[in-house]
Amino acid sequence: MLEVRGLVAGYGATEVLRGIDLDVAPGEIVAVLGANGVGKTTLNRALSGLIPSRAGSIRFLGEAIAGRKPAEIVSAGLIHVPEGRRIFPNMSVRDNLVLGSYRRGKADRETNLERIFALFPRLRERMAQSAGTLSGGEQQMLAIGRGLMGNPRLIILDEPSLGLSPLLVEEMFGLIARIAAEGLAVMLVEQNVVQSLELAGRAYVMENGRIVVAGSAAEIAANPALKHAYLGL
């Protein structure tokens, strides 16, 4: 579904990604792990077309997408839920969700709204409420729900547990498992290593803009030397 080969990207004179190879197959959860500052968010931005790639290739559903505009990538079904939620605080919960179907999913808007409200019942209760007045956990639910409104084929979740209490983190990972159980491919980009490895089928570990470890999540979780060397555990 997603094939990345030799991806190089950065900002100005700074090269952040230094030859990334990565794959996501249909229906699987793939975790991309690493400490803060190793290039995970830059990877997400390059895949989403928010920054240009300098070398390498990105193919989604067999089509080259490097160099395409973000709107075109969304239209293809690759949807990125960014770190920090990025909701529209002065708009209602419902209007935030509806905006998720602006580029893709308009025909299924009402059906998808009901699906989101079934997945996140608290959003139904707060449908008319300004999004900026939601709790941090509810805002994260809204951000993911907005992404799902676009009928993604692959959804990239960038640090969905960031800033949440331990109880809400547990709930958030449970909700991601439910989303994936419906057959949606998920690329989970996280610093929360333990729970990400419990949820994912495969994992990549990043360090200094490179993939340093790749394999099954179970193998990585069972290797204390890898976790200590690259993840600080």
Rank of each mutant, 00 (worst) to 15 (best):
S48L: 13
A25E: 13
G39P: 11
A25W: 07
L50C: 00
R115E: 10
A31C: 11
N151I: 13
L134R: 04
L142M: 03
N151L: 15
S216D: 10
G201Q: 14
R115T: 09
P121N: 05
E171T: 13
G150L: 15
P166L: 14
L99V: 15
A180H: 09
K106H: 07
E170Q: 10
E159V: 04
E72V: 13
L233D: 03
G183L: 10
S165L: 00
L123Y: 06
R54W: 14
N223K: 02
P224C: 08
I155E: 00
G136W: 01
A46F: 00
E198W: 08
N112K: 15
A55G: 15
S165E: 00
L78F: 11
E219N: 11
S196K: 04
S48G: 14
R126N: 14
P160M: 02
G201T: 12
D158P: 12
E83N: 02
D158F: 01
E159R: 00
V74Q: 03
G12M: 05
S92A: 03
R54A: 11
I87P: 13
V194K: 10
I220F: 14
S135F: 05
A35Q: 05
I58W: 03
S135A: 06
G163D: 12
P26T: 04
I79G: 03
V194Y: 02
G19F: 05
M206E: 05
L142H: 01
N96K: 05
L2I: 03
Y102N: 03
G174L: 06
I144D: 01
N208Y: 09
A214I: 09
F173T: 06
E182W: 02
V98A: 13
G183M: 07
Q195I: 14
A214L: 11
A181P: 11
E110T: 06
R68Y: 04
E3Y: 04
V169Q: 04
I220A: 13
V30I: 15
R86E: 13
E171M: 12
H228T: 13
A31W: 07
Y11T: 08
N192M: 14
R124D: 10
T133A: 06
A218H: 08
R146N: 07
S165K: 01
F120Q: 04
E190K: 05
L50F: 10
R45M: 15
R146T: 08
A221S: 12
G62R: 10
A25P: 06
G77L: 05
K69R: 15
S75F: 13
S165Y: 00
G136S: 07
I179Y: 07
L197S: 06
N223C: 14
M187I: 13
